[in-house]
Nucleic acid binder design. Structure first.
Lengths: 340, 340
DNA sequence: AGAGCGTTCCAAAGCGCTTTGGCTGAATTG
DNA sequence: CAATTCAGCCAAAGCGCTTTGGAACGCTCT
């Protein structure tokens, strides 16, 4: 059932039927009702390919998926997607993932914009002076960055959590508990969120006249194994840290294992705080010793990004509005006063 | 730069240019070269929306993403996606995720097929007599099921791993080690893979004249917490199992924690085997006691599904070919002889 | 020489929608 | 009452591609 048939059986022109369906004002309400009714009764659905060719709008939002043998997609992604999908569903938006060589995402961005394949895109895990952000900005497609870049000479719309504040608070807590030797097991330092977390921690330490030594900070991919290795290295030093802040629950798993292997205890020998993106399948309260966390639901972020993307597509949101969410510090049993 | 302009500047008709570009035989090789050349030089890219309207082909593969507040997307999904994306990239295929109410995916399948939004779809985590499989089969769009359904009165193309064989082997190993009381911590029993694993285990037990008691099998969502709870329940019985097979590494994490909490040891008091989908961020060899696993890379499966999907789209693959991958049994320190 | 044939190209008709520009007749205005 | 206005409808022109149904040309074959 296409527009032609539908309009024919209503003895109306395609124009009128199209307008009636799309809510244009220049059609009699009585006629509109008739049209709507017939459309529903016959299950008419405008062909998206045709509509898209005519309007250039696709009803989809895009994401460029970095791929490659050595490229691992972050498990956070799926939670983010959950939230995004949840909102997108309610608004009949589809999401298109365009796989790209991780070393050359630009070509793909250019392609999907040139082809008008999607109405908007989002960018995640931005790095400082991220070229993707710059590119997408000049290409002029609606977009939102999940996270923040830095050192770009223009403003752009983003949604980020207060990573600096979160780790500042975490460090401040540890300092208040008397810890002097803190360490940070961070995500790879090419990503802005990791930089912000380090910054927050340094700021807290500076307030107490302390610094974060070069050797007390690890920047690694967020796997259990890397968490373990980093923790071992830190704890086997001559003057090991008495408290560690860790950028992910998964790495924290490794830290806990290292602590055990070394015959140490949490929080007796080591206080531990980690960032929690809120996975349904791994919860900080279920750690051997309930884990203190800085918590922010990445799923909610996904939903919010979808919401703002939709708003930008329909012109309800404009400009370079940045949105930063505060992060909860949740204190559980994994932190205690510094050992004497 | 569109076809009209390009053909005009070549003083050729759109027909000829189109045919030259698409490799049709009825165009002079010399002309084809000229066209190809000009196209490349001017960076001509056919508009996908137009092409799609004309041909009905979209160059995308689809996946219906179940969403909802209470719906958690499996973290396996992201690994599968990695593999799929990796292959799709090389073939210029995009992936469109259509979010759907988890209770009503059918509407969405109908929509994407009716709208010809994608050239093929894949279905994951099938359940017995899965309605999605039946639906998609009658709708006549190319598809592949990742996993298997059961009790359907027709054949269909799928890619699955030998879950039954894997757990049969795992159980057989445990039996050989003298274990008599085995337990299974499985994924939710609505999914076929869980049923197959249970079946494999039962079969192995039957061979030794044993059975898997009702209380010795847990069917739960695969979270760390559920693994913990299941293990506690099992181990606190009067005659606790001496060996557990577990359907995921994440649940195994919980099992290990439970064992510790109860003051037991692996493999002294309990032998443990788990299924490993091969995540980059959590590896069985890094468990406190290296975990024995049944191993199969879900990432490779993703790549293979993409490959077969592409083959079906282009007509290279036809019919209802089922493909079952064998699963490696990797023995590590977490299994030992049954306690005396 | 004319029929027959394969090669190479083209004009034009879709694909199914949106949108422009214009037409009608009734209501409003001076 | 003629002149405007306006609500409500329509025909037709795109959007940019693919594909159908020839047409023109140079050959070979009888």
């Amino acid at each position: 059932m296409n527009l032609k048939q539908l309009s024919h059986m209503l003895s109306l022109s395609q124009t009128t039927v199209s307008r009636a369906l799309n809510g244009y004002p220049e059609v009699n309400e009585e006629t509109r009702r008739r049209v709507m009714d017939a459309a529903k009764r016959h299950g008419y659905r405008p062909n998206p390919s045709a509509r898209r060719l005519a309007t250039g709008k696709s009803g989809m939002i895009g994401y460029v998926l970095p791929t490659g043998n050595a490229v691992d997609i972050d498990p956070h992604f799926v939670e983010f997607l959950s939230g995004l999908g949840d909102y997108a569903r309610a608004h009949e938006l589809d999401l298109v993932l365009s796989p790209a060589d991780a070393d050359d995402e630009e070509t793909t961005y250019r392609r999907i914009v040139a082809n008008r394949q999607v109405d908007a895109v989002y960018i995640s895990s931005p790095r400082p002076a991220d070229r993707r952000v710059a590119l997408v900005n000049t290409l002029g497609i609606p977009f939102i960055v999940h996270g923040r870049s830095e050192g770009l000479d223009f403003d752009y719309p983003y949604l980020d959590i207060d990573n600096e504040g979160a780790f500042h608070e975490a460090a401040r807590l540890l300092l208040q508990l008397g810890h002097k030797r803190l360490a940070l097991i961070n995500g790879t330092d090419r990503e802005t969120f990791a930089i912000h977390r380090e910054r927050g921690m340094r700021r807290a330490l500076a307030t107490s006249g302390l610094t974060l030594g070069e050797r007390h900070i690890c920047s690694v991919a967020m796997t259990e194994e890397n968490g373990y290795r980093a923790a071992r290295r830190l704890l086997e030093e001559s003057e090991p840290p008495t408290a560690i802040a860790c950028s992910s629950l998964i790495m924290a798993l490794g830290v806990v294992r290292a602590v055990r292997d070394l015959g140490l205890t949490i929080p007796g020998d080591l206080s531990l705080v980690a960032h929690d993106d809120v996975f349904p399948w791994l919860r900080p309260e279920n750690f051997p010793v309930p884990l203190s966390t800085t918590r922010s639901s990445i799923r909610l972020a996904g939903a919010r990004v979808a919401e703002r993307l939709a708003a930008r597509i329909s012109g309800l949101e404009e400009g370079a509005r940045g949105e930063v969410w505060p992060v909860d510090l949740v204190v559980r049993g994994s932190v205690a006063g510094a050992p004497v």
